[in-house]
Amino acid sequence: MIPLHHYLILSALLFCIGLYGVFTRRSAIGILLSLEIMLNAANINFVAFSKFVTPDNPIGQIFVIFTIGVSAAAAVVGLAIIVAIYRNYKTIFVDEINIMKW
């Protein structure tokens, strides 16, 4: 039985990796992927807590199912916007998309 804190450390690590990805990736899709990683980190947390903290109540896992659904929807919307960006900017490198500033 892997103790709870192992899971927590794993999810924290994943969260940080995802965060690092968001900061460093140049392309919008890269950022989208790292966001998904961060999301999954949260999912791991939920499942872990559902197992260890409230074994009898599966609410945590239900939450995960919802988040997966939501992340799918978000990905769709995100990709649609990235396509629109590509059509207008001819690039999806985030550091080149800043017409609007101060």
Binding site: V22, F23, V94, D95, I97, N98, I99, M100, K101, W102
Partner: peptide, 14 residues
């Protein structure tokens, strides 16, 4: 303060 608003998404999240 206005200079902070650099327009780069990653800057904002950072």
């Amino acid at each position: 303060l206005r200079r902070l608003q650099s327009g780069f998404i990653q800057n904002y999240i950072l």
